[in-house]
């Protein structure tokens, strides 16, 4: 069983792809829901896990059992919600519609790598602040680097930068003529180059996009700041999930020291999919080389424990048989997580 501080309100599961982060997030939620009301926000769960939880990928919150709730984030929808919320007081329905039809916006809301990270954080922040749940657990997007996720607010924030919007400002809301309003020759040259490279249609789209979003700088900055506060709050706990593989362990070591340096509250490391060690000696037969390999992995695992910071708790979780993934078994996974 993994210990979580009594004051913890948010748990963020981080780690690279393919280590079973989503299942671990769901297992923690299930175990913790025995005493608290818990919501788990998942991203792209496997079909099997989604079936086990009984949820659909539609961004809605589903009651799984008793105090356990789950939601699969829908990024396009979350990003859309964010834009509507930001635009609410400053833009007319026509202006909003114009932005929603902008080609760049359409790509941004669905494809930009940072937008997924940003919309997860935006939803997390919303759920935490709703105070509906005692604990909200977020399974982070499968970003190659956790940094992409942690720095998503700034990345998105840059788009809304007042300086950028200024180049395209057009108080008359006309699509033409913004080039005339450019303030210095350097920018004129840049826009010319851009137009030569990409054609004037693209520059026009760009102008429409930046003019539309510049007004939302203030509400966005507030959101970015709120997200940042949430990530660094004392009531937010990070859990790093990794797997038993020499290169994964090295990766986890690097990641954990970086995360701590940046001031995030990393408490635990879970090494997932650790086999149940074979106690018997096997000296002959077809599996002898594999058993030897497993024993070498075990030695490596025990050896790696001391390399993590002394205040970090290092846990292991055993591989689950493929046909055991039912909602009842999720709590079992949680209870069977043990300190190394």
């Amino acid at each position: 069983m993994i210990k979580v501080a009594a004051t913890t309100k948010t748990i963020i599961c981080i780690g690279t792809g393919g280590v079973g982060k989503t299942t671990m997030a769901a297992a923690m939620a299930s175990g913790l829901s025995e005493h608290k009301k818990v919501l788990v926000l998942t991203i792209d769960p496997s079909l099997r896990l989604a079936q086990a939880l009984g949820i659909k990928p539609d961004g809605e919150v589903y009651k799984v059992k008793n105090n356990l709730y789950a939601c699969t984030l829908n990024h396009a929808k979350a990003f859309h919600e964010f834009v509507l919320k930001a635009a609410k007081d400053s833009a007319s329905p026509e202006q909003i519609e114009k932005l929603l039809q902008n080609k760049l916006y359409k790509q941004l809301s669905t494809q930009l790598s940072g937008s997924q990270d940003f919309s997860s954080l935006f939803k997390l922040n919303e759920f935490v602040h709703s105070k509906e749940y005692d604990i909200v657990i977020l399974d982070t997007p499968p970003a190659q680097h956790t940094w992409n996720f942690l720095h998503a607010p700034e990345k998105i924030g840059q788009l809304f930068n007042e300086g950028v919007a200024q180049w395209f400002r057009d108080p008359d809301q006309k699509d033409t003529g913004f080039l005339k309003r450019i303030l210095n020759t350097g920018t004129t040259q840049v826009l010319k180059v851009l137009e030569n490279l990409t054609g004037s249609e693209f520059v026009k789209e760009l102008g429409v996009f930046f003019r539309a979003i510049q007004k939302w700088q203030t509400p966005l900055e507030k959101q970015v700041w709120d997200c940042h506060k949430l990530l660094t709050a004392k009531t937010t706990e990070f859990i790093l999930v990794t797997a038993l593989d020499p290169s994964r362990i090295s990766e986890a070591l690097r990641l954990s020291s970086e995360i701590e340096k940046q001031g995030y509250n990393l408490k635990s490391i879970i090494i997932n999919r650790v086999p149940v060690w074979i106690k018997e000696e096997v000296t002959a037969g077809p599996v002898v080389r594999y058993v030897k390999y497993l024993k070498a992995l075990e030695a490596k695992l025990v050896g790696s424990k001391s390399k993590f910071g002394p205040h970090l708790k290092v846990y292991k979780s055993h591989e689950l048989s493929h046909n055991q993934l039912h909602v009842e078994n999720l709590s079992d996974i949680y209870h069977r997580i043990e300190l190394i």
Binding site: Q111, K155, L159, V164, W167, Q189, V193, L197, L206
Partner: peptide, 26 residues
């Protein structure tokens, strides 16, 4: 494409270009 290094610097040092790179997924 631009051939001239200084033009490149001007181009990439510009906030519009940087925002364009960020905003253009792909």
């Amino acid at each position: 494409l631009l051939k001239i290094e200084s033009l490149y610097k001007l181009f990439f040092g510009n906030p519009i270009t940087r925002a364009l790179i960020d905003v253009s997924p792909g």
